[in-house]
C-alpha cells in the first residue's frame, strides 16, 4: 500500500532535450499536488516517469520504502489523454475489462457506474461518447479498482462545471481515505493541494 511519494532531484530527458532537472517533491497519504507548467514543460513525462513508463535521467522516485515495481503494478492509476479505450467496444465491455484488469470486483464496478452516472451509456460504443463522457468512463476505474496513488493528466479538461465539482468531491474522498493525488493541470484543482511548477526551479508548498 503506497502511503508516500517522493521525487528526489528528478530529471527527465525526451528526444535528446532535457525537460526538467532537480525536481523534488514529497507527498504523504492524504495529500494532493497540482503539477503546473507551460505546454511541453514535461508534466505528462513526469507522470509517466512516476509510473515507471519513462526512465529518469537522474534522481529517483520513491514510494515510501516499497519495491517500485510492486508499488507501480498494484498501487497506482495513470489517467491521461490516452485512455486506452477502444472505439468499437461498448462502455460496459471497456469498464468491465479495465476494472477487472486493475483488480476491481463487480460491487466496486457498480459503485463506480453510479458515481459517474455511466448507467445510461453502458450499451453505447465508446466512439459514440462525447469527450466528457469518455473521460468519465476512464475515471470510473479509479473507483472501480481502488488504488492509493492517482496520477491524473489534466483530468478536468473535458468535464463540464457540474462534473468538475463532483470529481472534486471524489478526489476529496480519496484523500480522506488515505490516498495520494498527483495531477497535471492548467486550471486550479477544486481541492486543497500543493503546487509544483515545472520550469520554475524547485518545489513550492
Amino acid at each position: 500500500m503506497i502511503d508516500a511519494l517522493t521525487l528526489d532531484r528528478a530529471a527527465v530527458q525526451r528526444g535528446g532535450r532535457l525537460l526538467f532537472a532537480d525536481l523534488s517533491l514529497s507527498l504523504v497519504a492524504g495529500q494532493a499536488c497540482a503539477l503546473t507548467g507551460a505546454n511541453g514543460a514535461g508534466k505528462t513525462s513526469l507522470l509517466r516517469a512516476v509510473a515507471g513508463l519513462v526512465p529518469l535521467e537522474a534522481g529517483a522516485v520513491g514510494f515510501g520504502g516499497l519495491d517500485p515495481t510492486e508499488a507501480r503494478g498494484a498501487g497506482l492509476h495513470l489517467i491521461g489523454h490516452q485512455d486506452g479505450l477502444k472505439p468499437a467496444r461498448t462502455t460496459r465491455e471497456e469498464l468491465s475489462f479495465w476494472s477487472h484488469w486493475c483488480g476491481g470486483d463487480a460491487a466496486a464496478i457498480d459503485e463506480a457506474t453510479q458515481a459517474l452516472d455511466l448507467g445510461p451509456l453502458m450499451d453505447l460504443e465508446v466512439r459514440r461518447l462525447s469527450a466528457g463522457q469518455r473521460r468519465r468512463l476512464a475515471l470510473a476505474r479509479l473507483l472501480a479498482a481502488p488504488r492509493p496513488l492517482w496520477l491524473l493528466d489534466e483530468p478536468l479538461s473535458p468535464l463540464d462545471a457540474g462534473w468538475r465539482t463532483r470529481f472534486g468531491a471524489m478526489m476529496q474522498a480519496h484523500l480522506k481515505g488515505g490516498g495520494l493525488i498527483l495531477a497535471a493541470v492548467h486550471d486550479p484543482l477544486p481541492i486543497k493541494a500543493k503546487t509544483l511548477e515545472i520550469g520554475a526551479q524547485g518545489a513550492g508548498e
Binding site: 509517466r48 509510473a51 515507471g52 513508463l53 510492486e70 507501480r72 503494478g73 498494484a74 497506482l76 492509476h77 495513470l78 491521461g80 489523454h81 490516452q82 485512455d83 486506452g84 479505450l85 477502444k86 479495465w98 484488469w101 486493475c102 483488480g103
Partner: peptide, 17 residues
Amino acid sequence: ERDFEDGALDHLALSPV
C-alpha cells in the same frame, strides 16, 4: 499498434501481471 497508439499498452504494463 492499436494498444500502443491509444494508451492501452500503458495500462496493460501497469499491472502486477
